[in-house]
Amino acid sequence: MTDWLGPEEWEAVALSLQVSLWATVFSLPVGIFVAYALARWSFPGKQFLNGIVHLPLILPPVVTGYVLLLTLGTQGPVGRVLADWGIVLAFRWTGAAVAAAVMAFPLMVRAIRLSIEAIDPKLEQASATLGAPPLWVFATVTLPMALPGILAGTILAFAKAMGEFGATITFVSNIPGQTRTIPSAIYAFLQVPGGEGAAVKLVIVSVVIAMGALMLSELLARRVARRVGGA
């Protein structure tokens, strides 16, 4: 296996997994919170928040990447504050993770929001009348019942993060070992003569990882659905 992929390709695969994993893990709690807020609360600016969340889905990825560079880059308003704290995102793998998270976020929120909306609020009321404080209602009723959607959203976000290219290359460029994820690497290999072999290998790896994630999510979703459905 190690011989099949060269060190450069390995680097890209490992980096992609690292970036996508962190992107997914860090956006999951935020995604659940935002999905819950959009599904259950009414507050001023709700449609605006909904729009912001979905914006990366409809904007050209390059635009999203450029906006990230403008705000989070070392000269950007947020990036400067972060730099003072010693956090630099631009042209680092952490920046790639941020770009992947932002691009995957709408897919994650959508899946979770739908599953929360499918829960009958009367069950949450029942939980409250039985003495459960609001956070416990969420933990013991809402969260377990939304689990299929949370799983689907997580896997979807992970897959999207693995495939993210436009925003990533705009925000953090294509630096080997630092920000060159699988899609960036495939793009780079295709730019040089004789790079097709490496590119095809990475394509195969991408397909295998994507299929694996999809099958895992199907399996988990079916298991959870059996539990929740009680059959």
Partner: peptide, 20 residues
């Protein structure tokens, strides 16, 4: 008192058992 502090046993028309 908030609902969860009222110490009630509420039997609803549709049961409202927790399916999970």
């Amino acid at each position: 008192l908030r609902p969860h502090k009222r110490r009630l046993g509420y039997v609803f028309q549709e049961g409202r058992l927790f399916p999970h």
